[in-house]
Design a binder for these strands. Structure first.
Lengths: 328, 328
DNA sequence: ATAGAAATTGTTAGCGATAACAATTTGGTT
DNA sequence: AACCAAATTGTTATCGCTAACAATTTCTAT
């Protein structure tokens, strides 16, 4: 079992110094074409691969960013991670994942700390944040951190879709169609995202409210509860498409037609939404832009050695489909 | 800008040698309780964090596995990655992601090579594999690699759901209900998974066939094509739930009732499937088990320094719901 | 031809940890 | 009290790379 060749092996193999090999690998301009070719050939021949640990130790950089994600197959976290990966690869950065299975501040702090000594150059927290009171998020990271979501009052750098505004506009759309009683199926209210969307709804509408946990089933149950409550409503704004889909089933079972009896709006614009019956009106979130922006803020902080600051809110995009109708 | 404290700083701070600090950190049994406490206090006070790059350089281990995943929000890859992360964390391993955006052998080879010099202890390829002819997958990795899917003829270690068998059983179920003409909506046939499921269907049934790209829309189009072809069928086996959902819409538009006119079976058992109208019969894949098995094979190879070998096929689980009915 | 500048190469010293071994302290027996 | 073994600590070399500087070669202009 012979160990992998090092720079010295390559250097010896073609009669130069290891530093010259290093120069070739790192694209230094001051290497003659002849030696460069020689070195490259030796690298090829020996199957040399750079040892990143050694490089990291020498430079203090790893070209790796840590990502704190949420361990689930929910659409939001999944799509966000996907977009981020694409952005990271484009910028030549690797991604180390550290997902939390619950979104408490304690769990997220732990994840950040763990990534901190995994020698990443910076950290991106794309996991949803908890709305529950309790301990603050202790951020004693030596590397810059950018969030996708922060609590009111926190001063960390953040890039997100403007959840409140998007929800407000979605609800306002229903109101503008003449709906007076607009119900809401909220997400789990220990998620900040869920509270933002709820608040956006509440800023415009007044109507019955129930909450689920983002799943289809919970949307179904929540909608049944809304119906059973006896409170009138002619429209529902659901905090995500999956729950809206569950609501569709509940409405159908109650012999309520969409959109004739009840207009319905979701949130996310998942691929299926267009194919629901009827096609679902919803809010599209541009995760690609969020990914690019959040990463570029982090990279800027890494390069300048500064602490990332400021917040960027990207508007959601209303997508109008057959599930809404004028109330008149 | 003072650099992070090193072991030497901690050692000096409490008057021991750096090696003793190392022993405390790595839980060596031969440290007196008194010094241990002293060191721990100093670590706390200085906010010392271990430098993983240095540790990796010294030990040759990183406690990190590389994962080659597929860059998408499709259910399969997403769920697989999720399960894997959970398993990795349980075993104390970090995950470095390197996703490919196309599944050619070339792209996957590159991703493996890149992870290879990212100093990972082992590599897991959970990305779907391409069925297209062409260059073989060159596996010149210095660390062990386990796959989630291999081509016939490849001799790499592999752990997967038995796609062929699951598809065969799903189709056989329809046949046992008296269906003679069972159509198939295949996935993209440049995916091995799609060919396996198609082959499983073809092993039992004979009927019209169309193929999509896993999306709802493509299932809708494929089903319309099946209907337009005029060939008779009383059941459809779709290669995933999303396409089955698209097919539902096409059937409804053609005034065909499910399951009275056409029985329908999908594949994946996504959360929504139970709430389709009618609820969709499908095949559930136990990704958690795949994740655990694939990881434990890799870790075994890492520990023993051996090359991983052998294959494990985990059966899919048929889930029977309202979308199928006897043909009689 | 030759000095001086520019380009190219080589040498040495860390980065922060572990491994292997050496040195010291502690404890138990006679 | 003296001695040996066991437990605890310290010392030095090393992992593979880059940074900083030193040395050499090559070119250009007189």
């Amino acid at each position: 079992m012979n160990r992998s060749p090092s720079m010295f092996d390559v250097a010896k193999h073609c009669g130069v110094s290891h530093q010259t090999v290093s120069r070739v690998i790192n694209g230094s301009p001051n290497v003659s074409a002849a030696t460069k070719a020689k070195v490259l050939a030796a690298i090829q021949e020996l199957g040399y691969q750079q040892n990143l640990a050694a490089k990291a130790l020498a430079t203090g950089r790893t070209q790796t960013i840590g990502v704190v994600s949420f361990d689930s197959t929910l659409y939001g976290p999944t799509a966000m991670l996907h977009s981020l990966q694409v952005a990271a690869r484009e910028h030549g950065y690797r991604v180390v994942l550290n997902s939390v299975s619950d979104i408490t501040n304690a769990a997220i702090s732990d994840a950040i700390a763990d990534l901190g000594n995994a020698n990443v150059d910076g950290i991106l927290v794309i996991a949803p944040r908890s709305a529950e009171e309790g301990s603050d998020l202790a951020l004693n990271s030596r590397v810059p951190v950018v969030f996708r979501e922060i609590r009111d009052g926190e001063k960390f750098a953040v890039v997100d879709i403007d959840q409140f505004d998007a929800a407000r506009r979605a609800t306002a759309l229903l109101a503008s169609l003449g709906h007076r009683d607009i119900a809401h199926i909220a997400g789990p209210l220990n998620w900040i995202t869920a509270t933002r969307r709820r608040d956006g709804w509440a800023a415009v509408a007044d109507g019955p409210e129930a909450s689920g946990d983002w799943t289809v089933r919970s949307g179904y149950e929540a909608c049944k509860a809304l119906i059973a409550s006896g409170q009138p409503f002619s429209a529902i704004f659901a905090a995500n498409d999956a729950m809206a889909f569950g609501a569709m089933r509940a409405l159908r079972e109650a012999n309520l037609s969409i959109p004739d009896d009840v207009s319905l709006v979701g949130f996310d614009d998942i691929a299926e939404a267009e194919f629901y019956s009827p096609a679902l009106s919803t809010v599209r979130q541009d995760f690609d832009t969020v990914g690019e922006e959040i990463l570029s803020r982090l990279l800027a902080a890494i390069d300048t050695g500064s602490t990332p600051e400021g917040s960027l809110l990207i508007p959601g995009e209303l997508v109008l489909r057959a599930s809404v109708q004028s109330a008149i």
